[in-house]
């Protein structure tokens, strides 16, 4: 297929995944900040940091204004990762490759775009419904992709973009927890800590999954283990990396190209399969996640290069 079309599909996948993530990140942050002992904004501050959009923010990054940050992350078109930017770009990409996506996929994104202004207005009164709506769009989009797209290059590229973005997002979301400073040392493992992890699990719809996977009670070790190493958990780094390799394998079979992206993806996978949560905790969760983010980012560049984006 056309390289430009491949690029558009890849970014369409990434942007919808990113919009969904931003909605979940903010959802988690709002829940963090509702917990007792919270100063009412450290959750939002950590979400802001985790999203990595500080460079685009015009306000004071040290003393964040809650409403300004929310507006910035949801509705500011100068922020390339804001939900409005993601939806606009995904729809533009889908429109420019109308031939490569099904009617259902385009309609999902087009309707989201048409309905955005009204949802934005309503969000002033009820931000939770807005966030839920964004997640609903992402689900509708995923459904359209899964149910209607031919299993060929357009499908693979859209999925590949989503998988790369999702790996990036999970790593960032885990990092939020790292960024949230507990009021005092002795709270680690205490009820606040517990409540924060629960909020995080809920935001990725993994609370029940956790109960199934781990018989013991909630612990930070287990949550990190699940989100990094358990490939049955669809948002885990392991699951994302597995999917990235599967998709690149399909394309390799079709195009005969075997390049830097294939090699880097395999390396990323072996980094996850050859270690475990104990090693990561010893090494430092934040350090591990930062490295993963850098590697994943490089993989994205290599994909663009390999397929002549």
């Amino acid at each position: 297929m056309l390289s430009r079309a491949a690029s558009s599909l890849y970014w369409m996948g990434r942007h919808i995944e990113r919009a969904d993530f931003t909605a979940r990140l903010i959802d988690a942050a709002i829940k963090f900040d509702m917990l007792p002992y919270s100063d009412g904004q450290s959750g939002l501050k950590s979400a802001f940091d985790a999203a990595g959009v500080g460079n685009y923010y015009q306000g004071d990054c040290q003393n964040l204004d809650k409403n300004a940050v929310l507006d910035f992350m949801l509705f500011d078109e100068t922020n390339p990762s804001s939900i409005i930017s993601c939806f606009a770009k995904a729809r533009h990409d889908a429109r420019s490759v109308r031939t490569a996506v099904t009617r259902e996929v385009f309609e999902t994104l087009n309707e989201a775009w048409i309905g955005f202004a009204k949802k934005r207005k309503d969000a002033k009164k009820d931000i939770n419904s807005f966030l839920a709506w964004v997640e609903e769009i992402a689900r509708g989009y995923d459904g359209a992709i899964q149910r209607t797209m031919l299993r060929s290059e357009p499908f693979w590229f859209a999925r590949l973009g989503a998988a790369i973005e999702r790996a990036d997002n999970t790593a960032r979301l885990l990092d939020v927890k790292y960024h949230v400073l507990l009021p005092r040392e002795d709270y680690v493992g205490g009820p606040i800590d517990h409540a924060q992890w629960t909020a995080l699990l809920r935001s990725v719809s993994a609370e029940t999954a956790y109960r199934w996977l781990y018989r013991e009670g909630l612990s930070s070790r287990n949550v990190a283990d699940m989100m990094i190493f358990r490939d049955v958990m669809p948002r885990s780094l392991a699951a994302c990396v597995l999917e990235i390799n599967l998709l690149l394998g399909r394309m390799r079979a079709q195009t005969g190209l075997n390049g830097a992206a294939d090699w880097q993806a395999r390396q990323l996978q072996s980094k996850i399969t050859t270690t475990n949560i104990e090693n990561v905790i010893q090494y430092g969760l934040h350090e591990f996640l930062s490295e993963f983010l850098a590697d994943n980012n490089n993989l994205g560049f290599s994909i663009a290069e390999q397929f002549m984006f």
Binding site: M1, L2, R4, A5, R95, R98, T99
Partner: peptide, 13 residues
């Protein structure tokens, strides 16, 4: 895009 789609060919710039 409609025509490219319905005849099943690439839409190029």
């Amino acid at each position: 895009s409609f025509l490219a789609d319905h005849i099943g060919v690439e839409l190029v710039e």
